[in-house]
Write a protein that binds this DNA or RNA. Structure first.
Lengths: 211, 211, 211, 211
DNA sequence: ACTAACGGGACAGCCCGTTAGT
DNA sequence: ACTAACGGGCTGTCCCGTTAGT
């Protein structure tokens, strides 16, 4: 789930192959450390040490510390299309798709180092720079679309506004994940995510009628 | 709304009177800066400069940077009892009390520098130290109590679990406030808080029956 | 000749007094090192070590390395008015004044560390920044004026153009001083300056007529 | 005028032919960059980039950065015999030869990148190493010889000492060229060289007598 | 003959905290 | 209670040079 190589690509870059691997390794290590300690508490030296390289070698792959952070954040965002793609394979009803999406995201936040690191770096974006991709809005849009589909299929409570609901879902999810990390090191994330399902999702769904 | 002076009651340490005032000023300035830029991006020198003092003077009042941050966070937590005390003056029904509390908290997050700074420093707690007061749990308890009262008064949907609902409220609120800060510098906080009321609170309340 | 305190100033800054002295010491040490090794080959650490301080202390007095270099260059330029002032005390004829000025400048380049360092830093100005004072032109003007006075007094060969002569004097002097430094570590500066006097000045002067 | 290719005479090492060409290209590019920015402000990477190679390729031809600088300086000195050789083709009187030489040198300093770079690197020799060829003395000798010939031919003012005059010529020329570069980027070099001719050369020549 | 990748060391600058002095 | 001055350590960054591989 946290693989950092890209073996599917053609093997015909004999020279760059090692570099690609090294770069991916560095990115993954950076994600680990940034995720654990935060941007300011991770030195390039820490990354190099864990990768068993020197700082100079790290600087061959990344121009500076910010670029490393940026790469982690971009990797974070690159994950979502993959995940959503997998979900669209299964043919689910609109509301089930929404629920499955949230489940999948929760899983990713619980297990995927890059996802966690990207989220944390977004939290600390003021220390990095302004050229990070804008956070949250993408998910607000995604969820709005899913909610609208559910509404059109008659699976959503008519009183629910898709856009507002999406914003609250994103906020609640983000807060949940963060609180779980701070309080229990993500140990109770599943429980807290269960709260989200029961408190929010349950009320949104229109029960399947019997006719 | 963001007073930082000593109370009108004359203190029995006339000499330290100025010191207390200076300390409060420093704390407030630190709150401003920490809230704006985050812990790591604020130097002691910045605080001293804005206070028109020297670094040494700051170190007379606070042993080190962490203690300054700690004092801000403690001031943050000291605010809530005051606010909740005011609310208890008004005699409101349980659910109205819950709603009023959330309103009041939203207002504080929008207007009060110390509240904002404390929340941000909690976000960045790994950079500071572990001896910050545990966040979030206090609010989870507070809201649980309010929800239980509403349930006991028959104003809460019976299907709603007070504890779980409280956790989600806290998460959503925290996420909401953060997202609003990042995306619009808190400009759309009222709108997003409106989302919270309509999406979450509306579904929780049992409409007053007519008999 | 290379004193670096300013004892003439009033003693009424008891606190800053040490700082002024320290700053002057640092500037002098920086001049020594820059003069010996050049800008790029001198580290802040070198300066701090020779001053028996730490880098942090140096950075209290100078914001960065460039500012140190700039201060040295400015000290270089501040010297000339003093020197020219002294010369104007002696009442000399125009041409004698010119000759005496050149003598005095040669002496300064031979003995004064700040003068040497300033000249060298100007040589290396591309490594520093563009905000150094413009070099050479001041001297071209000064010497032009002196030559014009000599011409007006009938002491200058009528065929000599003051401005062009001044430019050549500056160029020759600068080159001479540099060449002497490179070839002999300034040991033969007097000899080479003697060349300048005999080759250039001798031909410029109109011999005092006997009537 | 600034050719850097191999001569037309076919070499007997056909394989190294490309290498020689590459080496010459690198040397010329290095001269450009060193001349523009100075030794310390040019990285091997800069040279490689402009040559559309990699750093490693540069290191194949030159052991290190110093050797590159040394090669540029040696190329500088290799130019002069060529230039003087051309001049000796024309049969000129001794003083005319002197004047023509200076003209030719001024032209070279104005147009030839390698000449400029070599001179600049000599200026910055302390950053490089001590094994650069000794500067200035060669020209002092050359000009001394030319002046002695002029003296022997009765074309030089008897009062002029050839050696001293040569030293001043070299110093003035070197200073002139440097000042022109700093102040105007060599735009006024011709004017300043005109000064040299009028101020110095004019006074040295004995006008051709009519008898 | 040339490339990609990596090693390694040095340096500027930053900033927290201390201390002598008043 | 406050200031000027100083100490000290860490880190991002730069850049020279090397090496495996082709």
């Amino acid at each position: 789930m946290t693989t950092y190589d890209t073996p599917a690509t053609t093997r015909r870059e004999p020279k760059q192959e090692r570099a690609r691997h090294t770069r991916a390794r560095l990115l993954h290590i950076a994600a680990e450390l940034f995720g654990e300690r935060g941007y300011a508490n991770v030195g390039i030296q820490d990354i190099a040490t864990r990768a068993e390289m020197t700082k100079g070698a790290v600087y061959f792959h990344f121009a500076n510390k910010e670029e490393l952070a940026l790469a982690v954040v971009q990797a974070h965002y690159a994950r979502w299309p993959e995940i959503l793609g997998e979900l669209s394979q299964r043919s689910l009803g609109p509301f089930d798709m929404l629920a499955a999406t949230l489940d999948r995201v929760a899983e990713a936040f619980r297990d995927d180092v890059v996802i966690q690191a990207g989220a944390r770096l977004q939290l600390e974006r003021t220390m990095i720079s302004e050229d990070l991709p804008q956070p949250y809005t993408g998910w607000e849009k995604n969820l709005t679309v899913l909610l609208e589909r559910a509404r059109d299929a008659g699976e959503l409570q008519p009183s629910a506004d898709p856009a507002a609901t999406a914003r609250i879902l994103v906020a609640a999810f983000f807060g949940l994940q963060h609180i779980s990390e701070v309080l229990t090191g993500r140990a109770d994330m599943d429980n807290r995510f269960g709260d989200l399902r029961s408190v929010l999702l349950a009320h949104l769904r229109v029960p399947a009628t019997a006719d």
